[in-house]
């Protein structure tokens, strides 16, 4: 009551939200790994979140790979370094573009659907119904989804990497001829663990953020069906925002650890 007085309302709301989200995350770690495990639901969610996102992720990754290659070509051509195209493009794709684009796409697709699904379950009392039927809805709904996104996003990023690199291969071949063999050799010659591992580790965090924020917004939905829409929207906006912050931190941390 006394704390926060004199602070403007949006700022106060922001801090309250941040606090609640942290609490929600702590609850995930406290309850999510305790038996009984909702393994069936985890599998179902992994299918929904992971497998069903393949087409969208593939499409965007392919386009990104192709476009980045085409766009980088003139710059390298001036420099006379076209043969560096595969290496340079692959590094930027693997390190930054694919993880972030995949995370943003998933924040849009998965984050909003989690926010809307759990939100509508909340307002139609399905969550209460679960609670009274002896199933912990937090574990059944939230923990499974957060775990699924955390596991699935890195896999989607790896998958997206492959597709993006293939897009890059086509991009290289729009001007000039490079065999697939030479392309892969050049790509893998340049890539290091320092490129790949931080990118996979950060996508684990991206996945966690997307699942957590989506579930949080859904779980705290109020004001009926109108609230459901707002939750879905906020889930996308907030998780995209946090994805960028995590990305920034990841870049800094891997820099400090000399992984870049």
């Amino acid at each position: 009551m006394t704390l926060g007085e004199g602070i403007s309302k949006p700022i106060k709301t922001f801090f309250i939200e941040a606090g609640e989200l942290s609490q929600f995350a702590i609850r995930f770690f406290r309850e999510g790994f305790r038996p009984p495990y909702e393994f069936q639901e985890l599998l179902r969610q992994s299918y929904e979140i992971g497998y069903r996102s393949i087409p969208l992720v593939s499409f965007t990754a392919f386009i990104m790979g192709l476009v980045i290659t085409i766009q980088s070509h003139p710059a390298l051509e001036v420099f006379g370094a076209e043969s560096w195209l595969p290496s340079i493009v692959s590094v930027s794709l693997v390190r930054e573009i694919t993880p972030v684009i995949t995370a943003l796409i998933c924040a849009g697709k998965i984050g909003s659907s989690i926010g809307a699904e759990i939100g509508s379950m909340k307002v139609t009392e399905q969550i209460d119904a679960m609670e009274v039927s002896g199933t912990n809805p937090f574990k059944y709904l939230v923990a499974t989804r957060v775990l699924s996104t955390t596991i699935m996003l890195p896999l989607l990023v790896i998958f997206g990497d492959m597709i993006a690199l293939y897009g890059g291969f086509l991009g290289v071949n729009i001007r000039g001829v490079t065999t697939f063999d030479l392309y892969t050799t050049q790509v893998f010659n340049k890539l290091t663990f320092g490129d790949v591992l931080p990118s996979i580790i950060k996508s684990i965090f991206f996945g966690f953020v997307i699942g957590l924020v989506g579930s949080f917004k859904g779980y705290t939905t109020s004001n009926g069906t109108e609230g459901v829409g707002r939750s879905a929207n906020a889930a996308v906006v907030i998780s995209s925002f946090i994805v960028f912050i995590v990305d920034l931190l990841a870049a800094q941390i891997s820099d400090i650890l000399h992984l870049l």
Partner: peptide, 17 residues
């Protein structure tokens, strides 16, 4: 999906490594 992706990742790591 999981197995194929993990395999691809393992191959890529091996290639890099």
């Amino acid at each position: 999906f999981v197995v194929v992706t993990t395999l691809l990742f393992a191959i890529a790591l091996y290639k890099i490594g």
